[in-house]
Simulated assay, not measured.
Amino acid sequence: MAAHLIVQGAEGEATSELAGLPRTASPWAVDHLVPSLLAELAIPELSAQQVGDLVARVFGYVAAIRAGTDEFAAVRALARLAPDNDYPDGDIGDAYSASEWLDCECHVNSPERDAATAMESTLRGSEPLVIDPGLLWALSTTWFRR
């Protein structure tokens, strides 16, 4: 993402440092740069709930426009974020709970499966984001498994 920001004209030490990190960089290498990056770009910090809501919109949007995705691509992608984020409330936590019922044949016609279907539909149907197509492509190339 930082490399894309540089291509779009963003400047700053944190932006350059983040762009130079390998994809395998640990959170320790990335996390301390994020507040500086936000300050360089004059982006206000968001609460965990706000970030979760935004990520849910991005995942839903990508699942809706990308051909060949799993029927529950957005729910599954959000659910994978829960363990690393201490099982937060909101869409990420809801997706984690909903994902427990997706691969069990015993829940095919259950209220839990219906709730997961409704959540996926809501995520995919949320208001489209205004996002640069190149950035959207870069962010979405590995998010969803087929």
Results as ranks from 00 to 15, higher is better:
A19K: 05
G20H: 06
G20D: 15
P22N: 10
P22Q: 14
R23Q: 10
R23G: 06
A25Y: 13
S26M: 15
S26C: 07
P27W: 12
P27V: 08
W28A: 02
A29K: 10
V30F: 05
V30N: 09
V30Y: 04
L33K: 14
V34L: 15
V34M: 09
P35Q: 13
P35E: 03
P35L: 04
P35D: 05
S36I: 00
S36V: 00
S36W: 14
L37Q: 14
L37N: 08
L38F: 02
L38Q: 00
L38T: 01
A39M: 03
E40F: 04
E40D: 02
L41S: 03
A42V: 08
I43V: 14
I43P: 13
P44L: 01
E45A: 11
S47R: 01
S47H: 01
Q49W: 06
Q50M: 03
Q50V: 00
Q50E: 09
D53L: 00
D53M: 03
D53Q: 06
L54S: 03
V55G: 01
V55Q: 03
R57H: 08
V58P: 00
G60W: 09
Y61T: 05
Y61E: 09
V62K: 04
A63V: 13
A63K: 07
A64Y: 02
I65L: 04
I65T: 05
R66L: 05
G68T: 01
G68R: 07
G68N: 10
T69K: 05
D70L: 08
D70C: 13
E71Q: 11
E71F: 13
F72N: 04
F72C: 08
F72A: 07
A73V: 10
A73W: 11
A74S: 12
V75R: 10
R76Y: 06
R76G: 05
R76D: 10
A77C: 03
A77Y: 03
A77S: 06
A77L: 00
L78C: 07
A79R: 04
R80E: 04
A82G: 08
D84H: 14
N85D: 12
D86K: 15
Y87I: 10
Y87K: 09
P88I: 08
P88S: 12
D89R: 15
D89G: 11
G90W: 13
G90N: 14
I92Q: 13
I92H: 11
G93H: 08
G93M: 11
G93N: 11
D94Y: 06
A95W: 05
A95V: 05
A95S: 14
Y96H: 14
Y96N: 11
A98T: 11
A98Q: 09
A98R: 15
E100K: 12
E100R: 15
L102T: 05
L102D: 13
D103F: 12
D103H: 13
E105Q: 13
E105F: 04
C106D: 13
C106R: 06
C106E: 04
H107E: 10
H107L: 03
H107K: 11
V108L: 03
N109K: 12
P111I: 01
E112H: 12
E112F: 05
R113M: 08
A115M: 13
A116G: 14
A116P: 11
T117N: 14
T117Q: 09
A118G: 12
A118E: 10
E120C: 04
E120M: 00
S126M: 02
E127R: 04
